[in-house]
Simulated scan of single mutants.
Amino acid sequence: MDKLTIIKIIHTVIWVFFNVVLFYLLYSVLINKIDKWVWICIGLILMEGLVLLLFKRMCPITVIARKYSDSTKDNFDIFLPNWLAKHNKLIYTTFFVPILILLIYRLISG
């Protein structure tokens, strides 16, 4: 297995992990089960956002994968459809913001 394939597998596994984190947040906020895991998930997502900011909106895994490919496709470093890889940050930010709004509402309304 070549290095780029290994990087793609790792990147995809991390992407799946963050999907689980987001869907756990959505589920927890919808059923009003605000526990320590909600705060851990928010911390993980904010930490991911900070890493993306530090790397100029680019995943550090993409930076590493760039050494092994000259591809201009957005999905050269992850096993996702190109359209999803291209719009991934926008999609998941758009998904995360309403979850935060609902969480704030749940906390305020008791």
Rank of each mutant, 00 (worst) to 15 (best):
F95N: 04
P60D: 04
K8W: 03
W15G: 09
L26G: 08
T12K: 03
I101N: 04
S69K: 06
H11E: 13
F96N: 02
L100P: 09
I42K: 01
I91Q: 08
N75I: 15
I45T: 12
P98D: 01
I64S: 05
T62G: 03
Y105D: 05
L54E: 04
L90E: 10
Y24P: 12
V21W: 09
A65I: 05
D70Y: 02
K73Y: 08
D2F: 06
D2N: 14
T12N: 13
F95V: 15
Y27V: 09
R106I: 05
T12E: 06
V29R: 04
L84E: 09
L107Q: 11
N82C: 08
I101H: 01
W37G: 06
P60H: 01
V51T: 07
K56D: 13
N19Y: 00
L54V: 03
I108W: 07
I78D: 13
F79E: 12
I45F: 10
L30A: 00
K86V: 01
T5I: 15
R106D: 15
L25C: 05
S109P: 04
F76Y: 10
P98V: 10
W83I: 11
A85G: 15
V38Q: 08
I99A: 00
L4I: 09
R106N: 15
I14D: 14
I108S: 13
L100T: 00
L103K: 02
L100A: 00
N88L: 15
V51A: 03
L84D: 06
L103P: 15
F18Y: 07
I45L: 15
F95R: 10
N82K: 13
V21F: 09
I108L: 12
I61T: 13
G110I: 03
W83E: 06
Y24G: 11
K33I: 10
V51Q: 09
V51E: 01
S69I: 06
G49Y: 01
K56E: 14
N32Y: 03
I64A: 06
K86F: 01
K33D: 12
I34H: 01
L84A: 15
I104V: 12
I6T: 08
F18C: 07
F96S: 02
R106W: 01
K8E: 02
K36Q: 11
C41G: 03
T93Q: 13
A85W: 04
T94Q: 02
Y68K: 07
L26D: 10
F17Q: 04
V63N: 07
L107I: 12
N19R: 01
W83Q: 11
L44I: 05
E48F: 08
W39Y: 14
L46D: 02
R57Y: 04
K89F: 06
L25H: 08
N82V: 11
V21H: 09
K3F: 11
I14V: 13
I14F: 04
M58H: 07
L107G: 06
T93C: 13
I40E: 06
D2R: 14
M47C: 12
K33N: 12
K56P: 02
K89Y: 12
L84C: 04
L50D: 03
S28H: 05
L53T: 05
K33L: 10
L26Y: 09
T62D: 03
I101K: 09
